[in-house]
Write a protein that binds this DNA or RNA. Structure first.
Lengths: 351, 351
DNA sequence: CTCCGGGATTGAAAGGTTTCACAAACCTGG
DNA sequence: CCAGGTTTGTGAAACCTTTCAATCCCGGAG
């Protein structure tokens, strides 16, 4: 009167098989299973097959916490991005992901949404997880938290910002140059009175782009009064649209005939409100954006924009990070790319 | 001749202080430090202060791997999204993030980029990490991998898709209804020949939206031949633009006077190519998109679109997941939201 | 002065993996 | 058939934290 072997009963929740169970099932020792996992070449094909069969049968899934605890390192990179809703950053992340995948690492993407507090919370969490390294486009690149993180042993790479210190690598695009390109282009088109749409000035990107525009003016012999500031609280489509309203409200005598926007979201918003207000682009107002996101070219008045090598930016950043973690003789470097102006209909010279 | 105490030498890499070091520094036991961390109310204010001071002095950072190994659970949720470059999913993720933050959990965002292989790799990695649960907009909701993941103990919530089985919760929007809304609106405007722009049909979202359009036609007494398929390989701006070229190439006798696009990216691409080809929107071609991403309203011909409660979609999904992990008596539920048509200039009735 | 109750603290076990020094088994050629 | 070298396999320690039963200490009741 044999009782049905319990292994044949569909156990509802056998609770996660571990390496130990696999070893038992395969009739080998713990260490051997571990070897199959980590150094398969050191185990004979026969035993390896046995072990692999056991793993499959038990639905074994390696416990990464335990692995990491013992091995001391994880295989996760993280990117803390500044604005998850800006396609620019999404593309940067895609570049990182490609680089990470090549080294068999995962990329953990977090979105600080430009909130210092949220950023800090993520950094804390990531450090606790002992991620292999952190890529970050910081709310404030001078924050001491970043330096400390690095000092305590988590490599940090600053993305899309430069940082004078020598604690980390950084990858950036020359925003001053970008601003210069944009403004010079507008001046070349015969405009002499430009609007600068963007903010807050606490963002280095915004500051630098504006600074570049000023330089271009200066080089053309025009004073800073030829740059009309239309400050925005954020860099969203909505803010750009609002700026358009304000622009339209200016007396036509002093109203700029061209606008340089700190990013494409603003530019698209501006474009929209121009359409709504009957301001023709580029005849009445030329517009230059920044980032050259896909939607820039897709806008019905395709947008002139300053292109940044976003994919490469991300890829390079991730590569530097990986290098830092693997090469003991690593020295920090600051990579700077040059932006490029892409001219489209939104600034075609008015006849 | 005393040798300088080594503790006074600035050690270059003192290697991560652990709970043990804190205990030693504070003159208490291991367990007490742990209590300060996990049940502060059980330790007297005096000792707590001592311990906290020691932690600060040593720059102690809790080791999450060890914690998780012992405690058995992590505090990370993950969202595997279908297309990181589509703002719709970004917004969904933002909703999840809010819900997660409320419960003091982190959200790990991964982008499968519509690649089954990448998706599988992420799922494997996440399971190894023993994340608390997985939110996913799957490439293929019928993939057995999902069911198995759930069976092995990682809760899974399907987002933006429904799944007949009873293994997980799901949160979706009724795409058939959405397609119906879009098509009926066009029919109401007097159009009788519609283009459907979208693909691949392996994506349930695309299939359902198309299906809805067919139903609307049927309800209006029109056969399926009144729906002209412009299949696209993906759902990108570029694909939409290409579809526009093809549309323009159709003999004007049979050319549809309205287009329903499976998402806004396609619609924006279509819009762009119309502008380039001199097809006026909406006079020559009415366009309806889907998702109502921010750029839809921002397009220079603002886009009529089917709005989905994306933020809520994400939030609800995360809430269900959290509930599943905390409430033992949890029963899986399938939540379905209704979409809503947002009418804008791109379909204003032609005079 | 002893005993008791209860809050504060302790110590040891446990959790799943990797690592490493070592043992066993096998092979090669003398 | 054996010595010595190589290839496989083993077992125990270590990683850092959490948990929980046990101990300690203190003041108050008897």
């Amino acid at each position: 009167m044999a009782v049905e072997d319990s292994s044949e009963v569909a156990a509802p929740a056998p609770r996660a098989a571990g390496i130990k169970d696999v070893a038992a099932a395969a009739g080998v020792s713990l260490g051997t299973v571990s070897n199959v996992l980590n150094r398969p070449e050191r185990v004979s094909p026969k035993t390896r097959a046995k072990v692999e069969a056991a793993m499959a049968a038990l639905g074994f899934v390696r416990n990464e916490s335990a692995r990491q605890l013992r091995a001391g390192h994880s295989s996760v990179l993280a990117y803390v991005m500044l604005d998850g809703r800006n396609p620019f950053f999404t593309d940067v992340a895609a570049g990182m992901e490609d680089a990470a995948a090549e080294d068999d690492l995962s990329l953990f993407v977090c979105n600080s949404a430009n909130l210092a507090e949220r950023e800090a919370a993520y950094l804390r969490r990531l450090e606790q997880q002992r991620v292999q390294g952190v890529l970050i486009t910081p709310v404030d690149p001078d924050s001491p938290a970043l330096a400390e993180l690095a000092r305590r042993g988590t490599p940090v790479v600053i993305v899309d910002r430069k940082r004078p210190g020598t604690d980390h690598c950084s990858v950036a695009v020359d925003d001053v140059r970008g601003g210069e390109l944009a403004a010079r282009h507008l001046l070349d088109q015969g405009h002499t009175r430009l609007a600068f749409v963007g903010g807050p000035l606490t963002l280095g990107q915004v500051r630098d782009r504006r600074e570049g525009a000023l330089r271009a003016l200066l080089a053309a012999g025009l004073g800073p009064d030829h740059l009309v500031d239309l400050a925005t609280p954020q860099l969203t489509v909505e803010d750009g649209s609002n700026a358009g309203q304000r622009l339209a409200g200016l007396p036509s005598a002093t109203r700029p005939t061209a606008a340089f926007c700190a990013n494409d979201l603003l530019a698209l918003g501006l474009l929209r409100s121009c359409a709504a207000l009957g301001i023709s682009v580029p005849a009445d107002l030329a517009i230059v954006g920044y980032d050259d996101i896909d939607f820039a070219a897709a806008a019905t008045v395709p947008l002139t924009s300053v292109r940044q090598p976003r994919h490469r930016l991300g890829r390079t950043a991730a590569e530097l990070l990986i290098q830092e973690t693997s090469d003991p003789g690593h020295v920090h470097q600051q990579v700077t790319y040059l932006p490029e102006l892409v001219v489209r209909a939104s600034t075609l010279r008015a006849r």
